[in-house]
Design a protein around this nucleic acid. Structure first.
Length: 354
DNA sequence: CATCCGTGGTT
DNA sequence: TAACCAAGGAT
């Protein structure tokens, strides 16, 4: 097996040359020309975008990022925000622990770091919501430090470049080593984004465009004809089907009864409809006694580790209803389906379209 | 360390 | 349509 170390400088140069021409435009990104001239992006924007991009596509993030930046232009603005405002703005993006940790992190930056992000991998790693990937991404992209990012793109590119057939996630440390060998001392931030752009646009999961890849010559999987089947992954567990019942109660004046879910667990910290537990055989749990009517149809939604089928009940919210601790009466004026997690919005859509 | 944690687009 | 996939982190 040839030693890629010998060619690593040439390879990173080839990739950067490709990136100089093909870098994708993103609202949080400083283009390669400006970056090469020494202009760094705002660390706040890099951090915000990287957290939003965790397990999430660029297309889905773009609008959320622009709305957050518009509403909270600096990390100090975000640190001073109300919890509910941030959670409402995050609604629909998923993985809601990210939003809770985002606020924790912003407040830590404000209280302990004078409003400035630390510029080293180690100190970034200590902040809530920042793991190995995000710490390396911020250190390299915002501060141009030669840290190695390892995300799904980089894993795929390295597995193919070296024709590694051992399955993820066990092989991850090996891929990290291979990636580190290629990380250049010059323009490491651009390099990090270049590898990820390469994975997103050319070295794609299916049907990689090997013919136009800047690394087509050194790629071992291309030579072996195995690129499309890499990286190998451990088989996934089947998703069970769970059932639940939600209760939509609207008062005559248009006020809705909602519940703020506990911070931990599924949809933690988000607003939702009162309802049963979600399991094999849900026990009805109406929030008040009434003549509940079941809507035709059902809500189907798939979470990370289970499928959910919801029955939707409706009744009129009585005048003078006194809510419990975690319940909220949201007036017609304040009610916005967009501030609900998607499964809850689906239940509302079923009601609206009845 | 295995499990938990969303969502929308693509194939 | 069911499965796969995406700029992962916390516990």
């Amino acid at each position: 097996m040839r030693d890629l170390k010998i060619d690593s400088a040439a390879m990173s140069n080839d990739l950067l040359a490709w990136y100089d021409v093909h870098a994708r435009e993103m609202p949080w990104r400083v283009g390669p020309a400006d970056s090469a001239a020494g202009i760094r992006p705002d660390p706040y924007r890099v951090w915000l975008s990287e957290v939003m991009l965790q397990q999430t596509t660029v297309a889905a993030v773009r609008g959320y990022f622009l709305r957050f930046i518009s509403r909270w232009p600096t990390v100090l603005d975000l640190a001073a925000a109300e919890d509910a405002d941030v959670m409402n703005e995050w609604a629909g993006l998923g993985y809601y622990a990210r939003a809770r940790n985002l606020l924790k992190c912003a407040r830590t930056i404000a209280a302990d770091h004078g409003g400035n992000f630390p510029d080293s991998y180690e100190r970034l790693l200590n902040l809530p919501g920042i793991g190995p990937y995000t710490a390396a991404a911020i250190a390299s992209i915002a501060f141009d430090r030669p840290e190695t990012v390892l995300d799904g793109n980089v894993e795929r590119v390295m597995a193919r470049l070296h024709d590694i057939h051992a399955p993820l996630p066990d092989v991850k440390p090996v891929l990290k080593e291979r990636a580190a060998e290629l990380t250049p001392a010059l323009r490491p931030g651009d390099y990090a984004q270049a590898v990820m752009d390469l994975g997103a646009t050319i070295c794609t999961p299916r049907r990689p465009a090997c013919g136009i890849c800047p690394w087509r010559d050194p790629c071992a999987a291309r030579a072996a004809g195995t690129a499309a089947e890499l990286p190998k992954k451990a088989p996934k567990k089947p998703k069970p089907i769970r059932h639940g019942i939600v209760y939509l109660a609207e008062a005559a004046n248009g006020t809705w009864l909602l519940e703020r879910r506990p911070d931990k667990g599924l949809l933690g910290g988000m607003l939702g409809w009162p309802g049963s537990e979600w399991n094999g055989a849900p026990v009805p749990a109406p929030p008040f006694e009434a003549d509940w009517r079941e809507l035709d149809g059902e809500v189907r939604h798939t979470f990370t580790h289970f499928h959910l089928i919801l029955r939707v009940m409706t009744a009129q919210l009585p005048n003078g209803f006194s809510q419990k601790a975690d319940q909220e009466l949201v007036t017609h004026r304040d009610f916005s389906p967009a501030s609900l997690p998607t499964v809850m919005r689906k239940a509302f859509d079923l009601y609206k379209g009845r």
